[in-house]
């Protein structure tokens, strides 16, 4: 699902639930999601094998 598809679906659902106030928040969230998906550390299966996700250690 693209971010645009997600946003349209979320906006429609929020409207159906009577939560029109969520509209600007969801639009802001869509921008954040687009940014997240564009990050260079995301897995791309068409690319070279990705590093395995590190165990979360400090």
């Amino acid at each position: 699902m693209t971010v645009d598809q997600w946003l349209q679906s979320a906006l429609g659902d929020a409207d159906r639930r009577g939560l029109a106030e969520l509209r600007p928040l969801l639009e802001g969230l869509a921008r954040a999601t687009a940014s997240l998906r564009a990050a260079d550390w995301n897995i791309d299966l068409t690319d070279e094998p990705a590093d395995p996700p590190a165990e979360h250690v400090r």
Binding site: A10, E21, L29, T33, A39, H56
Partner: peptide, 29 residues
Amino acid sequence: HRLEMGRYILGEDYVRAMRGRDVVTRDVN
């Protein structure tokens, strides 16, 4: 409203963010 917004976040984007967490942790280290 912020909590309701959280309910719309897709599982795949949550997983992306958790991968990003590992990346940022390595950066701070």
